[in-house]
Design a binder for these strands. Structure first.
Lengths: 350, 350
DNA sequence: ATTAGCACTCGTTAAAGGAGAGTGCTAACA
DNA sequence: TGTTAGCACTCTCCTTTAACGAGTGCTAAT
């Protein structure tokens, strides 16, 4: 057989691309005859058969059973994504559609995120998972205690990303509005321009001197601060288009479908999975590349969004490894950027 | 045949109950022999056959095809729910499990709602839909403008239910902190103890005299107030246990399953469906009783939750018409009450 | 190196043939 | 008059069988 034949020469790449292109839309194992007929490369099906056997031996293709066509392996998809596929730019209609949806203003960050998940899923036809803004590295812009009545006050926290959090806390006896005002100023002075993480670590030391009286009250403030932030985890995972999965025949098996929806219900897991370092741009995880067993039959395309150059969160779509990577990647890229522009502008103004 | 035989006598009710009890767990059409054997009523299968034919003619049972057993009709389920089924009280273990989960405090109302949807779905094995607190009839307890920096302020709104809403609004040139403070007081004075609805109707008239200067600013405040409230609709629909539907053989059909999940994705629709007048207690909608075509193959059990005697929202479960009504109703009832107690206490304190 | 030809594999589909569960009806019975 | 045993009949579901066809690998010819 000679070593020569096992090179990944141009023809092999061409054939691999053709097979994957075909399989992505058909979901059926691809045979040599199909390739020979559909793509006119001037070689016979027998030749293609030989090449396919080589590609299988090299790990780029798999055979469901002896007398079936070939199916791409994860390694095959990886090669396809990195070197073979043609990135499809969004159509002008699609780009305009997206731009228009982000045209109208709203101050409700959550609404924007929800809308993003819907757009993402409707354009890609996969399931979208969008994470709300990460709070941990965000800086505090303003912190204040607002008196409501004799017994309680509202703790308000505003970050430099324009996100607001608040919590009602009760006031112990014998604290008048003026004292509350002084505490409020003190907190603001102490924590302004600090990150949320800092609060968790520092306060006990720095505040200690203020804490001699009303120790409990201070504790409840710190408590409210940290817990109101920590909530960020599971509750800020937004899904869109979960039912899209039914479009794909691999999930017409009830067992598979159930697995998928069970997965989606584990919001904490999704959060852990998709929260990533600030690496911007679009990234693709194919099947077994995923560290989690539960996800090794899926592919995930992830992008980040930011405001004013600071990464805030991630958007992802999740679907079968037989995914329209080309379309998916360009949509993710475009929406990630559009959303970032939108948020940057929003925060700059508001 | 005689008119007599068509009465709903005790024996017919007994048989109907037996059939529905059986069908609810088996999901298979129930035959006369099954009833005769399993439930010892001292009559033969032939007699039961006659009664079943009567029950079918009266509309309580249906026959999928000539040589199959009987299946309850919606009318049959209705009779079952109203008169036949034995309400199963929660086991002590279950009651304790629920109580324990509501034992620990949190100020995050949203977390409580999310947890409720999880508990509901895990105990009933159906899909839970919980609506967040309705805002429209809620009274305003406190309203305030908190200055953040020169260019913007935070509008904070606290309701008598302890719910907080806020929005960042920008301040026009030439408004100093003192003036802002006066406006804040004015707003508070004007809107305190009013409902949100009132704001939408009244402000233009009442505020007009204040609005001579800074008309735009006032408009943006009113805008922020009303929109931050209106969000309430779709974004406050919480789902739990959607994947539970796969436990039931009627949804092993992919078409049916897809329909179900498509339904769940229409949050606005679910909101419209489940938001109801304050009628408290548990209510059941069976199949075609539902006004919406899309839901006529499902049954829905709904309860309300409240705080301090004021109804806030609804909890529901949705599942096949072949539902364990008895279990479902008692769980809904118990959780509705427990949640109400919890919230009542929470708001009384905080 | 390429390709035509061919035997072989294996999954898919359709038809055919029970098996089984259930019914309605009739006739006998208390 | 209500109840029940018996029976013919219906219809779905499951299994078996056979034929089909898409696809492969190998061999031999080009």
């Amino acid at each position: 057989m000679g070593v020569k034949s096992m090179e990944l020469n141009k023809r092999k790449l061409q054939i691999l691309q053709a097979i994957i292109d075909d399989y992505i839309v058909s979901a059926e194992p691809v045979g040599s005859r199909t390739i020979a007929k559909k793509y006119d490369m001037g070689i016979s099906s027998a030749t293609i058969r030989n090449e396919m056997a080589d590609l299988e031996e090299m790990g780029y293709l798999e055979q469901p059973h002896t007398s079936a066509g070939r199916v791409p392996s994860d390694k095959g998809y990886r090669l396809y994504v990195d070197r073979l596929m043609k990135i499809k730019k969004l159509s002008i209609t699609e780009a305009k559609y997206i731009k228009d949806l982000y045209a109208k203003k709203t101050n409700q960050l959550e609404q924007v995120i929800i809308q993003t998940s819907k757009i993402l899923s409707s354009l890609t036809n996969y399931t979208a998972v969008v994470l709300g803004p990460k709070m941990d590295r965000v800086l505090i812009k303003h912190i204040q205690l607002v008196p409501i009545d004799k017994r309680c006050a509202l703790l308000v926290l505003i970050t430099n990303n324009g996100i607001t959090k608040d919590a009602v806390i009760s006031i112990p006896e014998g604290i008048d509005e003026d004292y509350l005002y002084r505490i409020s100023n003190m907190l603001n002075h102490l924590f302004k321009d600090k990150s949320i993480e800092d609060i968790k670590l520092e306060p006990l030391l720095k505040i200690q001197k203020y804490m001699l009286q009303n120790r409990e009250f201070f504790n409840s403030i710190i408590d409210a601060l940290t817990t109101s932030i920590d909530v960020g985890d599971a509750s800020e995972v937004y899904l869109g288009g979960a039912a899209n999965i039914f479009n794909y025949p691999e999930y017409h098996d009830i067992i598979k479908a159930k697995e998928f929806f069970d997965l989606l219900e584990q919001k904490e897991f999704l959060y852990k999975l998709l929260v990533r370092s600030e690496k911007s741009g679009v990234s693709v995880t194919i099947g077994q590349e995923n560290q989690y067993k539960e996800l090794q039959e899926y592919s995930i395309v992830t992008a980040t969004y930011s405001a004013g150059g600071r990464t805030l969160g991630t958007l992802s779509i999740i679907g079968p490894t037989r995914m329209e990577y080309s379309k998916a990647i360009s949509v993710m890229d475009f929406i990630g950027k559009t959303l970032s522009d939108y948020l940057t502008q929003l925060f700059a103004e508001g």
